[in-house]
Design a binder for these strands. Sequence first.
DNA 1: GATTAGGGTTAG
Length: 790
Amino acid sequence: MPVLVVKDGPGPGTQVPAQLQRIPIPLLSPTSDCTGKTVKGRVVHKGPLVSMGEDNYVLKTVIQEEDSQQNMSPEHSSINIILFGALAKDYSESVSQGDMLLVTGFTVGNSPTAQKDKLHACNLQLAGDDAWMYVWPSTVSPRASVPRKRTSPASTEVTKAVKVVKYTYVPLSDLKPGVVVNVYAVVTFFKQPFRTKGTDYCSTLKITDQSNKKVGCTIFCDKLEEHPKIFKMGDVIRLHRVKTQLFNGAISLLTSHGFSVVTFDGMVGSPVVPRTSSGSFKFGEEDCQVVEALRTWAANQSLVPAEPCVPLSAVQPKTYFDLTCQLLATAPVDSSCTLLKVWDGSKCPHPLLDVFVEPNTLEGSPTLSKDMANLTANVLVYDNHVEVARQFKPGSYLRIYNLHAVPGASRLPSNDSGQSDQTGHLGFHLHGGTSYGRGLRVLPEDSPDILDLKRILETFSESDINDSSMFEVWSTPPESFERTCDHTVEQVSLAEVKSRGPPQVFHVQAQLKSYQPQRLYQSLKLFCHKCKTIRDVPDDVTVGGLFSEAQKDIGPCNNGYWTLVLPLPRELPSESPSRTLTLLMSSQLMGKGKAKELIFLKGATLEETCRIASAYSNIVPVTSPQGTMTPLDLSAPFLFRGTKRYYGCKQCSQLKVGESLGEGVEVWDEKSVADALGVQLLQYGLLMKLELQDGTGSLEALLWRDAESFFHVSAEDAAADQEAQDRVQETMDRLCPPGSSTAERPWMDLCLSAYTVEENGQRRACYQICHTDTRGTNPHTHPYAAPSDT
DNA sequence: GATTAGGGTTAG
């Protein structure tokens, strides 16, 4: 008998073993050693006895320490106690609110309700033969205890008016065929609702409970919102009015008349929030206890197989996994396929397949920037899942179940001509069917997993630097910058650099403390040598829009060029009827047999332009607003060469496309094409701000003019090629490993050019890293001692 | 008012 009622005596002493040592409640923590310890307090709340099957009970109670010496607020001296098994039943029968209680043989856990009830962050759990409790009955009529539900109206009315429907829940092991029951269980397998051949949607589940019996469950319901909202294995489910049935020799559960369902997150400690669409379901304190008991039980059962949820950064090719992500954009592909562009804020180590779609068929805005950072996953959703996926709105949060990571599948069904080579790039397929729970659903924004995801995604907008202001502040350094340092200059500390001031070139040894932008694709810039302005590389949506705009010009083009007009077959019924694609070639080049070296293209989409550019050396997209051929708005690339795109300066270009083209040009490359068209070519560059440190201080330095040699990457390659971008990332990861401490970062030999910038009449010193090669970063100990980590 | 499905990879 684990509950000992101490009939007389004012406090513990005679019957409580003397060797037991009491712990004040405020001092309890999950790491407390509870062996031989006791906790004492007055019962301020006693919950109902909840039956979980034969001899299986749970009861929650709260005790408050009255003589707490810790002088703490009352919430820290009140603690939840969860009683299990026979102890719960004994307690229910022999203890009342107001009694004094002393417990021993407990374990301390985190209280899942601490947020809600504002009580102690821990709870005490009592179960099994080791748990004992001593009770001193209250002298002030404890049996006429305070009504449990404080919000109840006058008690006489309650007993008359309210028919309390008491639900009893049957353990799964006790199910008999042919009856209607209520059950509480943990979900071990589930399929999102799918259309049946009949009139309903069907959810297929497998559930289990403390009886360890696994039971299949089939839910038919014509309304999707009335299906169980199950997000992951381990979720807790409450089913009311389900029918038992014998199928293949085993009991299974089936919806019956008046069926209802509520689900809960299965994680121990997460808030017990019922997920339901029903406005009138019953849910009380007892349900909380049952949910918490199931969670605690399931946590020790390894019911859920290896974590199926995998971030993009951990995806292995050829595997199936569940993805939790945000939807960026959708695009219908054909009647049995829809494209979802998604991200989860993590970078996939494998190059991701880029699926090109017409910007005008795309809903939402995937930026090329994100694609460039290898953050955007393209998910092709097939067959039965299309109906669900087409209702998703960009911005919503999704979980995609049993997604297939497929390397090298680089073509859309309708897209059979040569795209840029993406062999080995990872594409994601949600195949048709529902095997292995294949499917997808929107997750509510307040679910725990989505809150985590949001925190990750938010870091992507927080620290975006304003590039133009950064560059204006730093400006282009004056001639002092041209002085070189071959590391023969005397090495100085950062403090000395600051005190000596510009103009000067310094040789320093330093570590990287931080850098901006964190998203390296944002460091990619376009620079005009003539007007010295710098601009961002536009994303595909912007560029695609300019192409769509130019397509509206369907007028003729009379300029003496050799012209080939190709009518395009209609791929979609909605497409405007007579779209044509016009190839124009210089008659002059024709005469020299070099016509194919420079092709002007009118009426093409961005995607078509890219495809054609992969087959011809120089493609110039054009339009002819007044019948005269001219390049597109210079926000768009004026030239496509293979996978590379070249831009012109809007300010400094003076466009000319005459009949005589490129007199004397031998080789057509971006420079000669720009010259021939009167375009002032923009140069790709990498712009970053590095915060350096040594033992003497820290200093911000710009990396711009010599960024390419710093990274051993051409910015132009980085704009077109994921591998080149990866090399930049690898360098930064080497200099500043994610999560690393100062001591772990290598020392760099750097040259700093110090110069003066005037800003609002104020002169200030600025620094730029020059002539520095990061391949030889120096791991040795530095003469200026280890800098502090602050 | 009965029926649907009854877990166990597409093959794009």
